[in-house]
């Protein structure tokens, strides 16, 4: 499936990626080539095949609902671009 400029802009928006206008044709071409590669899958009859989500047959472990980790908020927030009073700062969302 070949993607056009609008498709690329729509996908970039879904992925929250700013893409330079000048780069869109190259993305359209490369993404179309990748989808053409992937297209080989459609020739395969997969009726009755169970999808494999994961390589190992395993169930999620359960544990008691108790506090197991200490609170390291300040330690982790040292690496944030902007914090104040323990909160992450972002541009004003509500006018």
């Amino acid at each position: 499936m070949a993607l056009n400029k609008d498709d690329v802009q729509n996908i970039a928006h879904l992925a929250r990626l700013a893409i330079d206008e000048a780069d869109i044709p190259a993305y359209a071409q490369n993404l179309s080539n990748i989808l053409a590669l992937v297209e080989q899958m459609s020739a395969v009859d997969t009726s009755g095949v169970a999808p494999m989500a994961h390589p190992l047959e395993m169930a999620q472990r359960l544990r008691e609902d108790v506090v197991s980790e200490e609170n390291l908020r300040e330690h982790f927030q040292q690496h944030a671009p902007a914090v104040e009073n323990g909160l992450y700062l972002v541009p004003k969302v509500i006018e």
Binding site: T46, A50, P51, M52, P55
Partner: peptide
């Protein structure tokens, strides 16, 4: 579709 083919490959 990919997950089903993944099963076949496995």
């Amino acid at each position: 579709k990919a997950q089903k083919i993944r099963q076949l490959i496995s």
